[in-house]
Computed example of a mutant assay.
Amino acid sequence: MPEGWRPAVAIAAALLGVARDAGLVTLRLPQNARQVPQDVLQRDLVRGALQFGFELGTGVRTYVSASLPYVAALAVLLANDVGTALLTGLGFALGRAVTPALRYASRAGEEWDDRLQDRLPLLAVGGGAVLAAALVVLTLRGFPAS
């Protein structure tokens, strides 16, 4: 793909992801729709979080309701920059680890799940919008430098 097109394609994908998450367009995401069982985290938080991250990150079990991970992966691919890939991977891993850690820390897992379920659409659209805005800002700043 021509280098000059890459930012526009990434931004367009982010906007498409936001539209999908907002329910404006229907687009099926590629995934192996099996969740990591909750008892993985209940047995041992640290080992469970590592197993959860490994299974999700490698695609062994990937139930992803939001477009954000797919858009981020495409943006990293288009950036063709190792630093961008590493920082995105680190951010994704930390973000994924926060969810089970917060659930565990709440000591009220079922209630926490219900509150999260109510907020998922807002989180998905908000996360996608933040990514789209970040891509625009990075593009305007010329990052990553070729």
Rank of each mutant, 00 (worst) to 15 (best):
S106R: 07
T99L: 15
P100L: 11
P121T: 02
T62D: 11
D118R: 09
A72L: 12
L78E: 09
V71G: 05
V98A: 15
L123R: 04
L68C: 11
T84F: 04
E111V: 00
T88E: 12
L74M: 08
Y104T: 05
L87R: 06
Y70K: 00
A93H: 02
F92T: 09
D114A: 10
N80C: 01
T99W: 13
L90C: 03
A101R: 10
V125W: 06
D114R: 07
V46T: 12
N80M: 09
A108M: 04
L120G: 10
S67Q: 03
S65F: 04
G89A: 04
L94V: 10
F92H: 03
R43F: 13
E111L: 10
A105R: 14
G109A: 10
V82S: 01
P121D: 01
G91V: 02
E111S: 06
P69T: 11
R107E: 11
L50C: 10
L56C: 09
L50M: 13
A66C: 14
A85K: 01
F92A: 15
R47L: 15
A49D: 15
L87T: 08
L50S: 11
L45E: 09
F92C: 11
A79Q: 08
G89F: 07
A108R: 10
L77K: 13
E110Y: 07
A73C: 05
G95N: 01
L56W: 00
L78C: 08
R103F: 01
A124K: 01
